[in-house]
């Protein structure tokens, strides 16, 4: 839901601002002519292209955050994380259907295309050939990786702090946390907003990558896919999430590429089986995990603040030291 919203908002902002900044008429952003004009503006004006991209990302994050705040109200009323997943799944599907049937939002069913990467203009400076398309895309992919690393580091730092401890306490025992004056609703809202800001960002990045925001991309399988990623790696472990995302994305892209490749060798083979077969594989993985390993492959991580290292924590049968302050801190335990 937040991913899709970020995508649609990002694309719409980009489609409106590109002509606006370059002095061209905005017109109907869904027209084929406006799509062509977007592409030529992106090619001609590097500065506008990049700054519109930044603004589009900012709006996508803002939209994701606001939506996250709104969604946190029903989310606060459910006790089990599985019900929360249901809310998000239903919310995502509602979003998709609304967008599909509302031409005013992201051009409805047709989607909004002609969203080039912010480095499209680089192709002016490159010799004609495949490089013209690949360099801007490759550069953009590198930027995405950097942003992803940034998000991961942020998440790791948050987890290994008093806030991480607070999050765990709120998750594990609401009543006990409240008895210690923790505002549980507030914490849940905060984390929901942070998560959906990240999802909004991801949605806009994705749209800029594939060049089109279309409701078809926001089918429930997307939510399920993310769900599988989470459960696979272990959802209380940031590295686990990364592992899950890696495995599922590889499965996803791998099946697509291999399906197409196989079909070119064996024309009789129906590549759909391989390309869409991934959904079946994902479903099987999900079921197996739910039955045998509900907590995922990697275990939950401990919160690593000084409280963890200061008194020799984490070690079995640690000897209490009478002068804790003199125990040398064992270096920064933060990872990532």
């Amino acid at each position: 839901m937040f991913f899709g919203l970020g995508g649609v908002v990002g694309a719409t902002v980009a489609a409106d601002l590109l002509p606006l900044f370059s002095g061209a008429a905005v017109g109907n952003i869904c027209d084929i002519s406006s799509r062509l004009s977007r592409e030529s503006i992106a090619l001609a004006y590097p500065a506008i292209s990049v700054s519109v991209w930044v603004i589009a990302l900012a709006f996508a994050m803002l939209a994701g955050g606001i939506m996250g705040l709104v969604a946190s109200y029903p989310a606060l009323r459910v006790k089990e994380e599985w019900f929360l997943s249901m809310i998000l799944l239903v919310g995502g599907e509602t979003f998709r259907i609304v967008v599909t049937n509302t031409p005013e939002i992201g051009c409805g069913f047709n989607g909004l295309d002609g969203i080039t990467t912010p480095f499209y203009w680089l192709s002016n400076y490159l010799p004609s050939g495949p490089l013209q398309a690949e360099v801007p895309t490759g550069l953009y992919a590198a930027v995405i990786v950097l942003l992803a690393i940034g998000c991961f580091v942020f998440a790791q730092k948050i987890c290994n702090s008093p806030y991480g401890r607070l999050l765990k306490s709120v998750r594990d025992d609401k009543v006990a946390a409240e008895a210690l004056a923790k505002d549980v609703s507030r914490v849940r809202k905060q984390i929901m907003v942070i998560g959906s800001i990240m999802a909004g960002l991801a949605g806009a990045l994705y749209v800029y990558y594939i060049g089109v925001a279309t409701p078809e991309d926001y089918i429930p399988a997307l939510t399920f896919g993310i769900w599988v990623m989470m459960i696979l790696g272990g959802y209380a472990n940031n590295r686990g999430l990364l592992l899950g995302a890696f495995v599922i994305t590889m499965l996803d892209r791998g099946s697509l590429v291999s399906g197409i490749a196989l079909e070119s060798y064996f024309p009789t083979l129906n590549s759909n089986l391989i390309v869409y077969g991934r959904y079946m594989v994902e479903a099987v993985i999900l079921l197996l995990l739910l039955v045998f390993r509900r907590k995922g492959l990697l275990p939950e991580t401990r919160v690593k603040t000084k409280a963890y290292t200061l008194f020799d924590f984490g070690k079995k049968n640690a000897k209490p030291s009478s002068q804790p302050a003199e125990v040398p801190p064992k270096g920064d335990a933060t990872t990532g």
């Binding site: 702090s161 008093p162 806030y163 401890r165 607070l166 765990k168 306490s169 594990d172 025992d173 009543v175 006990a176 946390a177 008895a179 210690l180 004056a181 923790k182 939950e300 401990r302 919160v303 603040t305 409280a307 963890y308 008194f311 924590f313």
Partner: peptide, 22 residues
Amino acid sequence: RLFPGMTVLENTMVAPRGQKGE
């Protein structure tokens, strides 16, 4: 009611209010 997966000290560390890192 203690928080699982935490040491006794970490449990007590949840208690202080207005922690900057919270």
